[in-house]
Design a binder for these strands. Structure first.
Lengths: 249, 249
DNA sequence: GTCAAGCAAAATGTATACACTTAGGCCACT
DNA sequence: AGTGGCCTAAGTGTATACATTTTGCTTGAC
């Protein structure tokens, strides 16, 4: 239930002492998106504007703005005069999202390889590889290592994506990330040996890029994402998720 | 200038006698999107909410709703407290959009081939092939044929996309279509023999799907889109468009 | 003459009142 | 009893007033 989560937190108004970065609309958007991506909404549930505005202690205006944006991102369905409902993501759609993300990130990798990296990008990637090596050299994970590797993993992928210098590509991959359990930051569902194998993929991809073989790097990245998909599907099946995405937390 | 185009048309309010399908917000959204896609906005121009609302004879509320939606679609850039500006699409980005669209439509074709078509879909596709044949058999185009073929072309691609039964894929391709000159409906820039070659591609792709070879169909579709890209780039170069998309009307 | 600070105008963000549409139940009629 | 239309309540759509932020322009000091 979305009510609980939103009510548990502080109200949006005066959330940041100095009324920091943005507008109430942006705060509300982030809050709602987070709640939806976490699966804290019953799928198909109607989102009542007045209830939401009361929970968040704002007027309907920023709530409506947030809903419109989230509908644009594909997280909500909109019908005129009937409001917004939370979309549901069946397993088949998650699998498809991985296929698409594999194609797109492969393309991004090729573009990045063709353009080459600047010093800063090279540094971030190499740092992510070193950090991952350090984490994995222990041979097992201790508490917090998994979320630490999640950040490392994100740095690697985002840097390559940024080096592709292609805004449309970035936005499309961003859409893929909005499908629950399809984000590259989602590595919760995997075991140590899966993570090690995928980190090794990162090494190989980077080496191929440095070797000046964009086309091979594209294929490697696509295969890398396909591997993630396989592991996730296996995990979801083991959990007995019968067609619905399991909650990863 | 966006002012001229919007002012030239009738106001949104009471546009449809019986207040037909939707809300004012939707009408405004469509109008603005059309204007932007047609290139009737100076790229990078700031869109003033009060001016727009005066031109369209509505309040700021539906205008803001439209701007938020269009920003979500990637047509506008948004900065908090600073408003919305029209994004510009350099030639390189258009080319990239075609690369992406090729990958995506290829994937959609494979999915469609794997699932197979139902009777209705089969009929629409075969009709589009027959219609195209009839139009092209004359050996040349007369006035209006081009826009007629645009509709035929759209039917073919949209039916395959629909048969892929993958909403995320559909939405991503939709984003590609929002890049000016990257839409599959945009066939204005091509000559008769280009259209004939591409219509022949349609025949081949459909035959491959019927032959039960999804993987080959994927490659054919990707190549098909790549061909369109080549023709467009050639056209734009001939027109002397120095890095900007030419106005296709 | 240049730069900085402050002020005023304009533009965006928010709240709220009101209009319109939809949904659901009640009652009458068949 | 079932069905149809009306009627009311709830919810979304729109307009507008007000708050806040930005902008650029003036004015003053250096």
């Amino acid at each position: 239930m979305i009510e609980k989560i939103l009510a548990a937190d502080l109200p949006v108004r005066d959330e940041q002492p100095a009324g920091r970065d943005g507008t109430r609309s942006l705060s509300v958007t982030d809050r709602l998106r987070e709640a939806i991506l976490r699966g804290e909404t019953s799928p198909g549930a109607r989102l009542n504007e007045v209830r939401l505005s009361q929970m968040l202690d704002v007027s309907r205006t920023p709530v409506r703005a947030a809903l419109q944006v989230l509908a644009g991102e594909g997280l909500l369905d909109y019908q005129p005069n009937r409001g917004y409902v939370v979309r549901q993501f069946p397993l088949s759609e998650i699998v498809d999202a991985y296929d698409i993300r594999g194609q797109l990130e492969g393309l991004a990798t090729r573009f990045a390889a063709e353009r080459g990296f600047n010093a800063e990008e090279r540094e971030i990637i190499e740092q992510s590889l070193r950090d991952g090596d350090a984490l994995l050299d222990k041979g097992h994970f201790v508490d917090g290592d998994l979320s630490r590797y999640r950040a490392i993993n994100g740095n690697f992928h985002e840097t390559i994506l940024g080096a592709a210098k292609n805004r449309m590509l970035s936005e499309m991959i961003r859409i893929c990330h909005h499908v629950p359990a399809s984000s590259s930051r989602n590595i919760i569902a995997f075991e140590f040996r899966d993570v090690r194998r995928r980190h090794d993929d990162h090494h190989r991809i980077y080496e191929t890029i440095l070797a000046g073989e964009p086309w091979r790097a594209e294929l490697q990245m696509r295969e890398h994402v396909a591997g993630v998909k396989s592991s996730l599907v296996q995990q979801l099946r083991q959990r007995g998720a019968a067609g619905e995405a399991a909650d990863d937390e």
